[in-house]
Every structure is written in C-alpha cells, then in structure tokens.
C-alpha cells in the first residue's frame, strides 16, 4: 500500500501531471506532518498510517501552495468528501487537483478525475460513528439549561486562537465573519459571550458542509470538542432534510413551506 502510494506520487511528479504532492511524512516526536513533495525522489518520504489524519485539503485554497502549481493530495475518505464539497462550492474545479485516494481499508485508489472520486466517495454512507452518535444523544438528552451550561463551560477556556478555523478546509473565507466589523457581528475578545458567539456562528456556517474530519477538535490546544457542535448539526440535517443532491445549504425548492426563502 505504502509502495503503491509512493509510486503513484513519483509517477504524477515525473510525468509532470502535478508539480506537488501533498501527503504525510514523519514529524517531530511521534507526530506526523504535511509534506509538500516537489521531486519524484522525495516521494519515498511519504508515509501512511493511523496517525495520518490531518485534512490536507486545507492546503488546496492556501495561496502559497496554489502558487506551486497543480497539486495531488493524499486523501482518505473525509479528505475526498472535502474536495467534493470544495467542488460544489466552486473552490476547486475538475483538472485543478489530482487525488491519491486511500480507501477505508487503506488501499490506494486510482481516480482518472475528480468526478470519479466524487462518485466513489458519494457511495460511502456519510454517518457518525457509534461513539459520536452516543455523544450527540447525550447532548440531546440534556435540558436546555444543562446544555447551555455545558457549552458555556467547555468553551470558557477558548482563547480565540482560531486553530479550529484555520485547520478547517471549509473555512476558506479570506475575511471571516468575526473579522467583518461594520458592524462587528461577533465579539473579538475571548470572553464567555464572545466565545459562544464565535463557535455558534462557525458551526452554523458549516451546516450541511462539514465533513466531520475532526480537525477542528484535533487542532484545538485545549482539546475542546468543537466537532460535537457540527456533529449535532449533521444529525439534525440528516433527520430533517434527508439526502440532498449536493448539500443541504445549496438545496432550493420552489414549493418550500417556509416563506422567508421565496
């Protein structure tokens, strides 16, 4: 599997199909980190194991990475879902990115184009794990007051370092709502209210878009379970809207029973 992935990266680079392969390599300590492989010989630095979970699609919209030329991305299922979402949102177009797909059982997948990647990943049900479902259910069973206090407490330590936002490939806005100050929609200081406003706003902006990769939670220096918010929204959207053609926020029905939308 590893040999095949490295070979694929070498082929893509030496044939000139891509100029960079974004994958995983050994980091400091026992950590792994994103690698940007520019030369075929360096492809042997790529690794793939259970530590390799960062959603590398975050780099696809980064200016300095784009400047390197066409990239290929090592992509497990959540990363593929992200790329599909970025395509829905016109951030990535067919031909701009090559995907070195990794199946759930760690097989390297060949995709001639993004369309075939999208077809592959669409066929894999998008659902929460049993543990994630249990956590959402626990949240749902709380009274409104308990839930309010729960979030106030877990978000109280947030310093607004925005690691959650910056690690999220779907938070690609050049100017985030929290930085829009006419008016200042969201308080900048990291006090209780400001933190609550920020995380609720962010979760709402990810409604129907979040692929549940978990990077916001992993990026948080305080390990705040921010993905619990988006997991709850994922559950609600599945319950209330079912499957959409593209994604829930993009669905529009002329006969929608809510009149604000017409």
């Amino acid at each position: 599997m590893l040999a095949k992935m490295r070979q694929k990266a070498k082929d893509l680079l030496s044939s000139g199909v891509v100029s960079t392969v974004i994958g995983y390599g050994e980091g400091s300590g026992n950590r792994v980190r994103a690698l940007f492989i520019r030369k075929p010989d360096d492809a042997d630095k790529l690794i793939l194991d259970e530590r390799c979970v960062q959603n590398l699609a975050v780099y696809l919209t980064k200016r300095e990475v784009r400047a390197l030329g066409r990239p290929a991305v090592v992509a497990r299922v959540p990363v593929m879902r992200t790329i599909q979402q970025l395509m829905f949102e016109k951030q990535v177009a067919e031909g701009e990115v090559a995907v070195i797909g990794i199946s759930p059982d760690s097989q390297v997948l060949d995709f001639p184009d993004l369309k075939s990647m999208a077809e592959y990943v669409s066929a894999i049900p998008f659902e929460l794990s049993a543990d994630e479902k249990a956590a959402v259910e626990k949240l749902e069973k709380m009274t409104a007051g308990e839930r309010w206090n729960f979030w106030l407490d877990v978000l109280s330590g947030c310093s607004k370092c925005y690691a959650c936002r910056q690690s999220c490939p779907l938070c690609y806005c050049e100017r985030c709502t929290v930085e829009c100050n006419q008016p200042q929609w969201v308080s900048v200081p990291s006090h209780g209210l400001g933190n609550l406003e920020w995380h609720i706003m962010r979760a709402m902006h990810l409604a129907g878009r979040c692929v549940n990769c978990g990077d916001c939670f992993r990026a948080c220096p305080l390990e705040i379970p921010l993905n619990l918010l988006t997991q709850k929204i994922i559950t609600d959207i599945a319950d209330k809207f079912g499957g959409a053609d593209e994604y829930a926020l993009n669905a529009f029905k002329p006969d929608d029973k809510e009149d604000f939308i017409r």
């Binding site: 994103a34 690698l35 690691a163 910056q166 690690s167 990026a219």
Partner: peptide, 10 residues
C-alpha cells in the same frame, strides 16, 4: 518551513 503553517494563533 511555513508551507504547512495554517496561520492560526495557537
């Protein structure tokens, strides 16, 4: 060095 830096303030 900073290609992988995502620009947070952590």
């Amino acid at each position: 060095q900073s290609l992988r830096c995502i620009g947070c303030g952590a």
